[in-house]
Amino acid sequence: MAVDRLLKLLIDDARKTPAQLAELLGLPEDAVRRKIDEYEKSGTILYYRTIINEEKLTTPVCSALIEVKVQPERGVGFETVADRIAQFPEVKDVYLLSGDYDLQVLVEGKSMQEVAAFVAQKLSTLKRINGTHTHFVLKKYKIDGALLSARPGDQRLAVTP
């Protein structure tokens, strides 16, 4: 399904109310409510979440991107392993990729030790996992389309013809 204008608005700012959305889109409010309801029921809209700039937090967050090589299983391929990994709450993203390795896993913890321990004890010990490569995240520049660097303010002249 193509990302329609309603979804685009919600992706940008999930706090917009159906009334506001309806006005911006030039649609009746109940039509917008119905559409959002449909999206929620069909699982098109999964969650409404907040993007945090972790550098501003007082409690540190440590994250790592982990390349995982998997021995696929007859009949189910990567599904069982991927699902086992995805169930851990420390795991934020799991993708199956083309290329040199199979799964890419984003793990978050409170410290480097915590993340390292998770990889050593939980992830790499899983059945059918042939190896892992851990890359700790040093700095984030853009998260989910949101740039973290300061944007220049309005530089236009106050009045122009």
Binding site: A158, V159, T160
Partner: peptide, 23 residues
């Protein structure tokens, strides 16, 4: 237009709806 430009230039926290170009 000049006059309003000069006036606005002396003030802070102005919201300008006077701009004839994209933001």
């Amino acid at each position: 237009i000049r006059k309003y430009f000069d006036l606005a230039a002396t003030m802070k926290d102005v919201i300008s709806l006077g701009v004839g170009e994209p933001d």
